[in-house]
Design a protein around this nucleic acid. Structure first.
Lengths: 216, 216
DNA sequence: CCGGGGCTGCACCTTTCGATGTAGCGGCCT
DNA sequence: AGGCCGCTACATCGAAAGGTGCAGCCCCGG
């Protein structure tokens, strides 16, 4: 099973080098090349490759935006490649849905390994990026006690729905509209939630919902 | 410059295998071995290795707790190793300050590469872990836009104090008591904050304060 | 089959919140 | 000095939130 790859890179020399590296691998097939972001998106939708190797700096449409479109369409896994290890690029690409992020100072076999890794649905990051990502993940560690988790788990399904809405900053009226109930009912639910979680206001409930990652 | 490694693993056979792999590398030196978490912490503090290769499941003190202690003491970089790819282990280890997280189904050279990577201060994750970490990073994409940051920066110092209190879930009365002002004054501040940040309720302000990491 | 308990839903009432207007006070710049 | 700005303060009023009592509903066990 060969891995079908689309290479999107505006500098012809770099693009040729990448293609050469990939062509040397028996299990990798370069099915297309793009010199700008728009072409990358168009070819990705048309060719449906397994992996798009995407440069960040490209004319007409930058690599991050192109990644967003490719991922939104579910067209392929995207492995982003760039010269500069900038937070803006990294976080932008990852938020856009990239499966990996490598720097151009890599070895040829690292690139190929990255292609294979993202092709099978895993993630691949440059080591320096990995460390920063771990850091940003570990830092906002607001310890949510197990007690709180249990208490939330003890809520009814409906109550958790309401709690998630509260966590999104919605008013009782907005929650009522979204969950299709009367505002009075929403108030009842909020009241019960506060009692069960031993909180005093919806603000505290909202903060807890945030910390627990409750989403609508 | 050889990399000094402490191997912490309770199963003797596995530990021996790890040591054997590492001893085969000219740039890696195994300076110690530990069969439980307490010994790992003690030896790490004593030997000050470059890297501690830490198993999660260990008697007396689990690997995550041991990692926390080693990192807190700044004794070494910790590369966590486990058989099971459980969220609890992964997130626990990373929050504890681990520089890497690998699964035991790895190749020998992946392990060595991981040792070298964390030794130079970078991060190393198993590919499946990388993907999940990217996911948890990308999903709770509460876009704390630069606009919001600027708006908060444009608040007066006093308003930011009030906002931090709101973010802590306090009521106007509580804020007034803490900041030594009348409740009416607190209301004025809250009202101004909402207007400046274009929010509709204190709940939204609280969420924003949380996302921005505002604390009292 | 029927009673009980938990979930959901609604209405009434009190408290809190939030908007608005007004105003005194202290610092800072011109 | 005069003026501007920010902090503080209070009153008032409508809106939102929160507590409480109560009524269907469904399921489970007697």
């Amino acid at each position: 099973m060969t891995i079908r790859v689309l290479v999107a890179e505006d500098q012809a020399a770099v693009r040729a080098a990448l293609v050469m590296i990939l062509r040397a691998e028996p299990d990798v097939e370069v099915v297309g090349q793009a010199a700008d972001g728009e072409a990358a998106v168009r070819l990705a939708l048309e060719l449906r490759p397994d992996v798009v190797l995407m440069d960040v700096q490209m004319p007409r449409l930058d690599g991050v935006s192109a990644t967003r479109e490719v991922v939104a369409a579910g067209a392929a896994q995207v492995l982003v490649l760039t010269t500069f290890d900038l937070d803006e690029y990294v976080y932008g690409a990852l938020r856009a849905g990239a499966a990996g992020f490598l720097l151009k100072d890599l070895e040829a076999d690292t690139l190929v390994e990255g292609i294979r890794t993202v092709a099978r649905g895993d993630g691949m990051l440059a080591p320096s990026v990995t460390r920063r990502l771990i850091g940003t993940f570990a830092r906002p560690d607001r310890p949510v006690g197990p007690a709180a988790r249990e208490a939330v788990a003890a809520l009814t399904a409906r109550e958790r729905e309401v709690l998630a809405c509260v966590g999104a900053g919605m008013s009782n009226g907005e929650i009522a509209a979204r969950l299709e109930m009367a505002e009075a009912t929403t108030k009842t639910h909020v009241s019960r939630i506060l009692a069960k979680l031993r909180l005093r206001s919806r603000v505290q409930a909202a903060i807890l919902a945030q910390d627990l990652g409750l989403t609508i």
